[in-house]
Amino acid sequence: MLSRDELHDLFDALAGVPYGGEVVDQRTHALQAAAHAVAAGADDELVLAAAFHDVGRAREVATRYRGMPHEQAGAAFARDHLTERSAWAIERHVAAKRYLVAVDPAYHDTLSPVSVRSLRVQGGPMSPEEVAAFEAHAWAPDAVALRRWDDAAKDPEGPVLAMDDLVAAYERVMS
């Protein structure tokens, strides 16, 4: 289990780290995604998934899981420090974007220009077979919800979850 100080250090290390051309930094993006999860009534496991969904980009995590895409590095970190459900949603948040583009014709138009560019690199819309496989998993709705919070967490004026609230959620889940 991570200590309060380790959690603060992990998220503080994301402050000022660019978020791929978006107008928020990695820390704001993470805590904003978590705030959206709380506002949506998500349980603590999903709030943590929202906060940690891009932790694979943190220097410490990326170094530990060198060579892995950020969603896989983040999921590996989450498997060590969170729950399997949180890890699964983190690992599938990129796939959830591909899924939404495939099943929701209006979704593509909601993506930021940066997210549209990354979608091409990530493989574009899922095939019908990929859609069916994704939908077959019990936690697919969690990954889709996480994806939507991820997409909404790019507003420099948007709400962010206080670190004390994130730590409290972590402690509740891990106790």
Score class of each variant (00 low, 15 high):
Leu2Tyr: 08
Leu2Met: 15
Ser3Cys: 07
Arg4His: 12
Asp5Ile: 13
Glu6Ile: 03
Leu7Gly: 04
Leu7Arg: 12
His8Ile: 15
Asp9Lys: 00
Leu10Asn: 06
Phe11Asn: 11
Ala15Ser: 14
Ala15Glu: 15
Ala15Asn: 12
Val17Pro: 02
Pro18Ala: 04
Gly21Glu: 01
Val23Gln: 08
Thr28Trp: 13
His29Arg: 04
Ala30Pro: 05
Ala30Met: 01
Leu31Arg: 02
Leu31Pro: 02
Leu31Glu: 00
Leu31Gly: 00
Ala34Arg: 00
Ala34Gly: 02
Ala34Gln: 01
His36Asn: 02
Val38Asn: 06
Ala39Phe: 03
Ala39Gly: 09
Ala42Trp: 06
Asp44Ala: 12
Glu45Tyr: 07
Glu45Asn: 10
Glu45Gly: 06
Leu46Val: 07
Leu46Gly: 00
Val47Ile: 05
Val47Gln: 01
Leu48Phe: 03
Ala49Asn: 11
Ala51Phe: 07
Ala51Arg: 06
Phe52Arg: 04
Asp54Trp: 11
Gly56Met: 10
Arg57Trp: 11
Ala58Glu: 13
Ala58Gln: 10
Ala58Phe: 12
Glu60Asp: 06
Glu60Pro: 11
Thr63Ala: 13
Arg64Thr: 03
Tyr65Gly: 05
Tyr65Glu: 09
Arg66His: 13
Gly67Glu: 03
Gly67Asp: 04
Pro69Trp: 08
His70Ala: 08
Glu71Gly: 11
Gln72His: 07
Ala73Asn: 04
Ala73Gln: 00
Gly74Ser: 07
Asp80Asn: 12
His81Gly: 05
His81Lys: 02
Thr83His: 08
Thr83Trp: 04
Glu84Asp: 10
Glu84Ala: 14
Ser86Trp: 00
Trp88Met: 02
Glu91Ser: 10
Glu91Ala: 15
His93Thr: 01
Val94Ala: 03
Ala95Glu: 09
Ala96Trp: 04
Lys97Ala: 15
Arg98Leu: 13
Arg98Trp: 09
Tyr99Gln: 02
Tyr99Pro: 08
Ala102Gln: 05
Asp104Asn: 13
Pro105Val: 08
Ala106His: 15
Tyr107Asn: 04
Tyr107Lys: 02
Tyr107Gly: 09
Asp109Phe: 12
Thr110Ile: 08
Ser112Pro: 00
Pro113Tyr: 10
Val114Asn: 00
Val116Lys: 14
Arg117Asp: 01
Arg117Phe: 10
Leu119Met: 09
Leu119Asn: 00
Arg120Leu: 09
Arg120Ile: 13
Val121Gln: 09
Pro125Gly: 15
Met126Phe: 10
Pro128Asn: 10
Pro128Ile: 10
Ala133Arg: 15
Ala133Cys: 10
Ala136Phe: 02
His137Ile: 13
His137Cys: 03
Ala138Pro: 14
Trp139Met: 14
Ala140Asp: 02
Pro141His: 04
Pro141Ser: 06
Pro141Asp: 00
Ala143Lys: 11
Ala143Pro: 09
Val144Cys: 14
Leu146Glu: 00
Leu146Val: 04
Arg147Glu: 05
Arg148Lys: 13
Asp151Phe: 10
Asp151Pro: 08
Ala152Pro: 12
Ala152Thr: 12
Lys154Pro: 00
Asp155Thr: 11
Pro156Arg: 08
Pro156Gln: 03
Glu157Tyr: 01
Glu157Thr: 04
Glu157Phe: 04
Gly158Asp: 03
Gly158His: 10
Pro159Arg: 13
Val160Gly: 07
Leu161Met: 14
Ala162Cys: 11
Met163Asp: 15
Asp164Asn: 15
Val167Trp: 03
Ala168Trp: 09
Tyr170Phe: 12
Glu171Ile: 04
Arg172Pro: 10
Met174Pro: 01
Met174Phe: 12
Ser175Trp: 11
